[in-house]
């Protein structure tokens, strides 16, 4: 699985579990607000991804990239830059 796919899976899992929604309501291109993701849950999501992937992420990412697909791409790009910086 690519990093983007892993991220998509983790974000979807978080939304399913945190929002207590049936998986059939989840869609990669639906705005996150449509799942009922607010600022508190958005902050939890960012924190959880920071912890899982060892990254430092801005809480505004969820508003700037407001679908699962877009958010996964944005975070994968940040991770790639971080890797590059380490090299």
């Amino acid at each position: 699985m690519t990093l983007v796919e892993t991220l998509q899976t983790r974000i979807s899992e978080f939304i399913c579990c945190e929002m207590d929604l049936p998986p059939e309501d989840i869609d990669l291109d639906t705005p996150l607000g449509a799942f009922g993701l607010g600022s508190l849950a958005g902050m939890k999501l960012i924190g959880s991804l920071e912890q899982q992937f060892g990254l430092r992420l801005s809480p505004t990412l969820v508003f700037e990239h407001p679908t699962i697909a877009e958010l996964a791409l944005a975070i994968a790009a940040i991770a790639a830059r971080g890797e590059a910086a380490h090299v």
Binding site: D20, L21, G33, F35, G36, L37, G38, S39, L40, A41
Partner: peptide
């Protein structure tokens, strides 16, 4: 769901 989270910050 969007309207409710937007206005009240909670999930239905």
């Amino acid at each position: 769901r969007s309207a409710v989270v937007d206005q009240h910050g909670i999930t239905l």
